[in-house]
Design a binder for these strands. Structure first.
Lengths: 133, 133
DNA sequence: ATCAATTGCGTTATGCTATAACGTGTGGCA
DNA sequence: TGCCACACGTTATAGCATAACGCAATTGAT
């Protein structure tokens, strides 16, 4: 599961996401990679699936789009919960990792005898830059 | 914006969701309502849009599906953040309303000068019943 | 080195989710 | 009565995602 070495397709998709300033849909990625030989959605989705497993790409459920992980540190299959703050104006996404949220959700889940496999937290709104304007 | 009186379509869609034991996709709702004259997705989506505005239906982003609100009390345009615990086995969804989570997210947002418009929190996993088995 | 197993790849086809755009009908209300 | 807002119905289209097939490359034990 470790991102030992990326395949060509995975590297291309990751690079595309890294260079982007906002989340990209799979089809947008596909369009950007046509010049590099991409022709079908599956080429993108398969790469995204792996990159997500590796923890270096995140899927934004409320957007049906993907971003490269900006948490510089340890990559690897998702140790903790990540919350996303997504600006509706500029598209900027910031990742928030907060133990308190995590603990609280864990508690709430346990109380209900719920076993959590995966948690999604997404805040949609406006970032400081866009509000300032 | 108050749910003063539902239109026929809205009532049918709400009833379908209320009777369901798991979240339903718009197209599943459409199929269930064909006998009542529904023929096109928009009939469902338009009803869902209103019902969601009224706060009596929630959209689950990680599922692209909808559930009837189970919080018995005050309906009305979303006062607070609601977290969902979604069982992958039986589909049961439980709504969790927790001020601590809400406050914490508000704090984290403010710190980053982020203005939140809408928050999505969804936990996917397994409910007590399904784990017990 | 070789074979088997695994993984990635490319392609075609298809399915699911959601909205645009247009026109009709109806009810409230000045 | 004439206007306005809103719900509705319909057709068409856009956008997101996966099934299923077969081939190629890689790995890794023998």
């Amino acid at each position: 599961m470790e991102p030992r070495k990326l395949t060509r397709n995975q590297a291309l998709v990751l690079e595309t996401l890294t260079q982007a300033e906002a989340p990209l849909s799979a089809y947008t990625i596909l369009d950007k990679l046509r010049d590099h030989g991409f022709r079908a959605p599956l080429q993108v989705y398969r790469a995204l699936e792996k990159l997500t497993e590796f923890g270096i790409v995140h899927r934004l459920e409320s957007l049906n789009a993907f971003v490269a992980c900006t948490h510089p540190h340890d990559h690897g299959p998702e140790k903790g919960v990540i919350a996303f703050a997504i600006c509706e104006d500029c598209g900027q996404v910031s990742e928030i990792s907060d133990p308190e949220i995590e603990d609280r959700l864990a508690l709430l889940a346990t109380r209900r005898r719920f076993t959590t496999e995966k948690t999604t937290i997404e805040m949609r709104g406006h970032c400081g830059n866009c509000t300032a304007a």
